[in-house]
Write a protein that binds this DNA or RNA. Structure first.
Lengths: 340, 340
DNA sequence: TTTGCTTTCCAAATCGCTTTGAATGCGGCA
DNA sequence: TGCCGCATTCAAAGCGATTTGGAAAGCAAA
C-alpha cells in the first residue's frame, strides 16, 4: 500500500492525499477526513526512506554509545535511552545508537554527516576542551551535549545537572554534622562532571577554612570494584576519614563493603552521601542503612533532551539552549554526626 | 557531494561509480581504484535515505526497548546494545531502539512494518506463548528472539542461554556441598528464562529425592530491593535455608544484605550462587566474599545475534537458527559446605 | 458577461541512489 | 573482412514520497 495506491483508491491525486495526511491547510476538512479514514482502514504508512529522501531530513537522531567510556556510562544507558526515545516516538523520530571508539570519533561524525543518517546527535560525557563540539559545528551537524564542556567558546546546546552545587551542598552538610576528614570518590578525572564535583567539594571545604586532603581523593571508573579499593585504602589512613562522598551508586556499593569489612558501621562510625541517577533497580531508599544521596533522574534528563532537540529542529538556536538542573540532596540514614 | 557530482568529477557514469563502490565484479580494477580514491578524497558517502529507497531495504535493525519490562532489562541494555551495534557498525547497519509498551506491541509492529523502518527486529524477554512471534511472522517481518518461547510452534530464530542446565548444575553443586534447604530467588514468573531456571532447580532437587519448599521460592523483578525482601523473609523461616540461588547480580546484592543483617556470614553460614550477565561495573570476582556465579556474557550474546541477523539477511532461514549457549558455573567464595 | 479571488485539487519535477538493458571497444577466429 | 564474445561502460527507468507551479470551480463584484 503506497501513496499512489491510496490516492487511486480515493480518486484523488497523490498531492492532495499527501497534504491531507501531513496537515496542510489547503485541503478541505471533509476531504482530509475521508483520506485519514481510508489511510487508517488500509493501514497506510508513508515509507520512511522515501519521505526522508524527499524532505532531506532523516527523521532520526543519533545517540552515541561510547565504547570505551561505556564502563561508566553503562548502567545509565537504558534509563537515558528510555527517556529520549519515549518522547521521540511520539514524533515518529527514530533513535539510532552509534557505537563510537573514543579514538576516532571525528571520522565517524564525518561519515554520519556525509551519509545524512541522522538529523542531530546527542553527545555525552564531555571533557573540558571537548573537541567534538568544534568538529560537529564545523560539519554543520546539530547536537546537544548532555553535560558541559568547560572551556569551549563555540555556542552550542547543552543540558547539565549542577554537579558543583550538589557536591558543595553535600559537603557542607557533612561539615555541619561535624565531619572534617571527608573522602571523595569521584568519577573519571578527565570528565567535566567529575571536575565540577571536585570543585564543589573543595569550595565547601575551603569555605570553612579546611583544606581537602589529597590522600583522601580518588577518581576513576564507576564500578563497585573501584569504590571498594579506594575506600579500603582511605580507611587505612590515620586519622581515618569519617565521611565519604561517592560519585555513583555503583561506587557507593563498593565503599559500603569496605566500610563493613573494616568493622565500621555506616551512618554511625562513617557517613556517606552518594550521587544517585535514579535507577529503578538500585534504590537508595531500600538499602540498609538507606543511603543519603544527591539525586537527579537521568531518565528525566533524557526526556528533556528529546524535547530540546525537537525545539532545535523547529529553529531554536542551539546557542540559546542551556539548562542547568538543580540536584536534590536527600538525607537518609547513611549520614550522621561525626563520631567524637 | 553526491553520486552525480562524483561521477562528473571522474568523467564516468553514475552507474559505473555506483558499481565500483559497491564491489560489483564488472568494473575494471583500475577504474575501481580511481573511483575509490576520489570518493575518499572528496569525502563522498552515499545518502542512506536514497540508497534505502532504491534498494527497498532500510539498512537498520530494530531493538525493542520494553518500557514496562525495563525494570529487569535495564542494566542489561547497554551491554547488549554494545554487543549488537559494534558488529553492525561494520556493515553500516543502524540500530534503532524502539520503545514499546507491553500493552500495545502488535500495533507498533504493524506500524514498523508498514513504514519499512527496519529490516529485522530483535525481541527480548519472551513468555511461553509469546504472541509476538505469530504477529511478526504474519507481518513478514524477520526477527530474532533473544531467549526462547516454550510453546510456540511457528519456526523462528532464537538464541538463548541454557538457563535450565545452569540452574540444575548450580543446584546440584549446592546439594553436593550438603545443602538441602535451598532458597530460590527467581525472575519475573511469566518469563521463560525464569521458568527454565525454576525447572532446572526442581529437577536437580528431585533427582536427589528432595522436594523444593515452595515457601523458599520467590520471583519478581531484578532489583536489589526485591532480593533483599525475599531473602529476609526466607531467612526468618525455621529451619532456615542454608543456600540461595539468585537470578541476577542485582538481586544478589539484596540477598547479600539480608544475610549480613541476619548476622550470618556468606560462604560459611549461608551459601549463594547468582546468575551473572557479566557487567563491567559489577564484578563477581571483586565482591567480598567473591561471588559464585552461573556466568554468561550478555554482550557476547548481542554480538552473536548481530551475526545471525546478518546471516538471515543473506537468506538463511530463521527456522534453522537456534542457538542454546552453555552457561559456566564459576565457583568462588560465596559457596561452602552446608553448616552442620 | 467578465474579472478577480478563494478554495481545492492536480500533473510533473525532484530528492540521490540502484539496476536494467543496451552500447561500445577490442581482440580473436573463421 | 566480418562476426562473435568478452570486458567495460552508459543512459534512463525506477524506488515512494514531497513540493512547485498551475488549473478548475465557485462565487462576488464590476
Amino acid at each position: 500500500m503506497k501513496l499512489k495506491d491510496l490516492a487511486a483508491e480515493l480518486g484523488l491525486s497523490q498531492t492532495t492525499v499527501s497534504r491531507a495526511l501531513n496537515g496542510f491547510p489547503e485541503v478541505n476538512e471533509a476531504t482530509r477526513e475521508r483520506v485519514s479514514e481510508a489511510a487508517r482502514r488500509l493501514g497506510y504508512r508513508a515509507n520512511v526512506s522515501a519521505r526522508r529522501l524527499a524532505t532531506g531530513r532523516s527523521g532520526a537522531i543519533g545517540v552515541t554509545l561510547p565504547l570505551q567510556r561505556s564502563l561508566h556510562f553503562g548502567p545509565h544507558t537504558s534509563e537515558f535511552l528510555s527517556g529520549i526515545s519515549e518522547r521521540m516516538a511520539q514524533h515518529d523520530i527514530d533513535i539510532v545508537v552509534t557505537p563510537i571508539d573514543a579514538d576516532d570519533e571525528i571520522p565517524v561524525f564525518r561519515r554520519l554527516v556525509a551519509s545524512k543518517r541522522v538529523d542531530a546527535l546527542v553527545l555525552s560525557a564531555p571533557t573540558p576542551n571537548d573537541e567534538r563540539i568544534a568538529a560537529l559545528t564545523e560539519l554543520g551537524m546539530p547536537f546537544l551535549m548532555h553535560g558541559r564542556a568547560d572551556n569551549v567558546k563555540i555556542p552550542h546546546a547543552w543540558l547539565d545537572i549542577d554537579n558543583e552545587g550538589a557536591f558543595r551542598r553535600a559537603t557542607s552538610h557533612l561539615l555541619d554534622l561535624g565531619h572534617t576528614r571527608i573522602a571523595m570518590i569521584n568519577g573519571p578525572e578527565d570528565q567535566t562532571f567529575a571536575i565540577h564535583r571536585d570543585r564543589g567539594f573543595r569550595s565547601a571545604m575551603l569555605a570553612r577554612g579546611l583544606t581537602p586532603d589529597p590522600q583522601l581523593i580518588g577518581g576513576g571508573r564507576f564500578t563497585d570494584e573501584n569504590g571498594f579499593r579506594l575506600a579500603q585504602a582511605f580507611l587505612e589512613r590515620r586519622p581515618r576519614p569519617t565521611a565519604f562522598l561517592a560519585g555513583s551508586m555503583m561506587t557507593a556499593l563498593g565503599v559500603f563493603r569496605a566500610i563493613r569489612l573494616a568493622g565500621l558501621e555506616l551512618g554511625k562510625d562513617v557517613s556517606m552521601i552518594a550521587h544517585d541517577d535514579v535507577f529503578p533497580y538500585l534504590n537508595a531508599d531500600n538499602m540498609v542503612p538507606s543511603m543519603s544521596t544527591t539525586r537527579s533522574s537521568i531518565r528525566a534528563a533524557g526526556a528533556r533532551i528529546a524535547e530540546l532537540l525537537l525545539q532545535m529542529q523547529d529553529g531554536k538556536p542551539p546557542g540559546s539552549i542551556h539548562e542547568l538542573w538543580p540536584v536534590e540532596l536527600v538525607l537518609r540514614e547513611s549520614t550522621g554526626p561525626a563520631p567524637k
